[in-house]
């Protein structure tokens, strides 16, 4: 009898040790994750997730043996992942906060910032809304809840419905810090993603929302059913406005890496910044990196 029990105990222990071993293995790999590895993980901004995916596919087509996984979830999620050294690249549509930089440092992660494209963050309304131009101040007041009817800004007598993103979105933070300089109205609907937001504004004549231009422009044309507002008289559809900063909501889309990128990650970033890569960004509705950010990129990449 004891033999049998003993044997089964040994068996259970063996399985246990085996399982524990299995659980540990990836951890070891994580610690020693090197940019050279042919497997690149990218996570973060929903604004740039499609663009990032396109780049990844193009790059994988031309570089056999490299596999890249791109997931969204919001800039906040991506930055949290790079802070915890869980991914190779974090996509972000906002600047990394000082507090996040500090956290990364505490975790032994050295954040390097590269701007990979420019976004003309678009303020969108329903195509049937006659309002075509708003100032940054007006937009801020609308999203703060201080302007609540379209007639206050020259539109029809309709209560304004505000659509925004959730707090893990970089666009949510960028818009709050650069347009509102205050808190969103509690009435604002917090949508799960850019596509849901776009669909909601398409269906709602009294709606207003904000979204990365890549979601409302395809092949140089505005998506049907929507109207992209001019802000302070400048349209984000004009490349020049984004380039010169005449469009006040032009912003860079960043990628953050842990330390200066090397190997495949560096190669991917170089491809993204190349003429071919930037062309793809334009096809997706975004704009090429401006000179100012190019210089910074070169510095950050150590070239």
């Amino acid at each position: 009898m004891s033999k049998k029990v003993f044997r089964s105990i040994i068996l259970v222990l063996t399985i246990f040790v085996f399982l524990v071993g299995c659980g540990r293995a990836p951890e070891g790999q994580d610690g020693g994750r090197e940019a050279k590895s042919a497997y690149i993980q990218i996570k973060g901004s929903d604004t740039s997730v499609n663009l990032s995916q396109m780049w990844a596919e193009e790059y994988m087509n031309n570089n056999e043996g490299v596999s890249i996984s791109v997931t969204g979830g919001g800039s906040g999620t991506g930055i949290a992942a790079i802070i915890n050294n869980k991914v190779d690249i974090a996509n972000s549509s906002r600047d990394i906060k000082d507090s996040e930089k500090q956290q990364a440092e505490d975790n032994g992660v050295e954040i390097v910032e590269i701007a990979v494209a420019m976004d003309g963050l678009s303020v969108i309304t329903n195509a049937n809304n006659p309002v075509k131009n708003l100032t940054v101040e007006e937009i801020g007041k609308i999203f703060k809840g201080e302007i609540s009817n379209w007639k206050e800004v020259g539109g029809p007598d309709l209560t304004i419905n505000t659509y925004g993103r959730q707090s893990n979105s970089g666009t949510y933070v960028y818009f709050r810090d650069n347009v509102l300089n205050g808190d969103y109205t509690a009435e604002m609907k917090r949508m799960n993603g850019n596509a849901q937001l776009v669909e909601a504004v398409k269906a709602d004549e009294s709606g207003i929302g904000y979204v990365g231009i890549g979601y409302v422009v395809k092949d140089g044309k505005t998506v049907e059913g929507l109207n992209i507002l001019d802000v302070n008289g400048a349209s984000p559809l004009v490349a020049e406005n984004v380039k010169t900063g005449a469009y006040p909501l032009a912003r860079p889309l960043y990628q953050y890496t842990n330390g200066k990128p090397t190997g495949a990650v560096l190669d991917l970033i170089k491809y993204q910044l190349s003429d071919k890569g930037q062309e793809l960004a334009v096809r997706e509705g975004f704009y090429p990196v401006t000179e100012e950010y190019s210089k910074r990129n070169n510095k950050n990449l150590g070239q």
């Binding site: 979830g73 919001g74 906040g76 999620t77 930055i79 949290a80 507090s99 996040e100 956290q103 959730q166 707090s167 893990n168 109205t185 509690a186 009435e187 604002m188 609907k189 917090r190 949508m191």
Partner: peptide
Amino acid sequence: TGNAPAFPKSIFSAVRTLTATIGIELGEVA
């Protein structure tokens, strides 16, 4: 449900529940 954290005015208001709040915010909180 729209996830607007305002106190709901009617059954047609967008609301945010306890569970949704955890679901949305836990992913990015420090």
